Amino acid sequence: MVGLVMVSAGITFAAVLYPRRRDDRTLAIPGLFINLVFGTFVEASYPFMLADPLVMAGAIISAGVGGILVGYYGVHGTAYVPSIAAPALSNHPLGFIISMLGAALCAAFITLLANFLSRKKASKPKQ
Rank of each mutant, 00 (worst) to 15 (best):
S123P: 03
I84D: 08
Q127P: 15
A86F: 05
N91Y: 05
A114H: 00
A88S: 11
V16L: 03
A44H: 03
G64L: 07
A63S: 15
G71M: 12
A79D: 08
A15M: 13
S90A: 09
L54T: 10
A85Y: 04
G66S: 07
A103H: 00
F41Q: 03
A63Y: 05
I84L: 13
A59Y: 04
L50A: 14
L17I: 14
K124Y: 14
C106V: 10
K126H: 14
Y80I: 07
G10Q: 06
G31N: 06
V7Y: 06
A85I: 06
T78R: 12
V81F: 07
I34Q: 07
Y80M: 13
C106D: 05
M56P: 00
V37E: 06
N91S: 07
M100R: 03
S83C: 14
L54Q: 13
I68G: 10
S99A: 13
A44R: 00
G71W: 15
F13N: 02
S45F: 03
V42Q: 07
A107I: 07
N115Q: 10
M100V: 03
A104P: 00
R22L: 09
I97C: 04
T12A: 11
T78P: 04
M49K: 12
A85P: 05
P125T: 12
V5A: 09
A122M: 15
L105N: 01
T78A: 11
T40F: 13
L54R: 10
S8G: 13
I84Q: 06
C106A: 13
K120D: 15
F96L: 06
D23L: 11
P93D: 04
L17Q: 07
D52E: 13
S90E: 01
A108W: 01
T111Q: 03
L4T: 07
L89P: 02
G39Y: 00
T111A: 06
A57N: 13
I97V: 11
R20Q: 11
A122L: 14
V81C: 07
T26I: 11
I61E: 09
D23I: 13
N35L: 11
L54M: 12
F41D: 03
L94N: 00
G39K: 03
P125R: 14
A85R: 07
F48I: 09
I97F: 03
G77A: 11
T12S: 11
P87F: 06
L94E: 01
Y72P: 04
I34W: 04
R25E: 11
A107C: 05
I34V: 15
I110C: 02
L112C: 11
K126V: 15
K126L: 15
A86N: 00
S62A: 15
G77F: 08
A86V: 04
L94I: 09
I61Q: 08
L50R: 11
I97T: 01
I60T: 14
V55F: 05
Y72K: 08
G31W: 02
Q127E: 14
S45V: 09
G77N: 08
E43P: 05
A79E: 12
F116G: 04
A114F: 09
C106I: 02
G102P: 01
G95P: 01
L112E: 08
V75S: 09
V7R: 03
M1S: 12
A44V: 02
M6I: 06
F109T: 12
